[in-house]
């Protein structure tokens, strides 16, 4: 895993409480609290940390944390 990936993962888990301790490849659909509130927290985090806008639909299509992080453009 790259250090960039690790730093994105760390930042995401800091802002979105329900992702704390979840493996990057675990299915998000298995998390009971992966809900509309969690999606808002992801949108807010991406907006402020990376200045990018992701839609609720884009987030819902991600099956894992790894796929969420792949929404962040590589610099």
């Amino acid at each position: 895993m790259s250090s960039t990936f690790e730093s994105h993962l760390h930042a995401l888990q800091k802002e979105v409480d329900v992702l704390v301790g979840v493996s990057p490849d675990a299915p998000l659909s298995g998390l009971p609290q992966w809900d509309s509130l969690a999606i808002l927290l992801v949108i807010s985090h991406f907006e402020h940390a990376y200045k990018i806008t992701v839609t609720g639909q884009e987030i819902r299509q991600c099956k894992t944390i790894r796929e969420l992080i792949q929404l962040i453009p590589q610099s």
Binding site: I43, T55, G56
Partner: peptide, 10 residues
């Protein structure tokens, strides 16, 4: 649609 309203607001 809460997520889209949030994006619109921001």
């Amino acid at each position: 649609d809460g997520a889209e309203v949030f994006n619109f607001s921001l």
